[in-house]
């Protein structure tokens, strides 16, 4: 397998991993399992599911994008396809 294909596969794996987290923090914690999570409260009086739906999912999205950008920059360098 050549380097270009390995780079692309590593990229796809990273994207899938990130999108799984993306799905879990928003649809999982904020919608599908919201009632179960609401039995726990955090940061004072936040029901956990409600917190994920209105706060936590958004914070997670931000972290995810920066994590993805950082890992992709590493992959660019490793496979020698960076622009610099």
């Amino acid at each position: 397998m050549n380097d270009a294909r390995k780079y692309w596969q590593a990229n796809i794996r990273l994207v899938i991993g990130c999108l799984v987290v993306w799905f879990v923090v928003s649809f999982g914690c904020g919608i599908f399992f919201v009632q179960q999570l609401n039995t726990i409260t955090i940061l004072g009086g936040y029901p956990l599911g409600f917190w994920f739906a209105q706060q936590g999912s958004i914070y997670s999205f931000v972290v995810l994008i920066f994590f993805y950008a950082w890992r992709m920059n590493q992959l660019d360098k490793k496979f020698n396809v960076s622009e610099d």
């Binding site: 904020g30 409600f50 739906a53 999205f61």
Partner: peptide
Amino acid sequence: ASVYLMGWTGGYCLLAML
């Protein structure tokens, strides 16, 4: 209304990665 909060921010993950 959480659908708007998640819906209008989560799209940026798709934008950045895809």
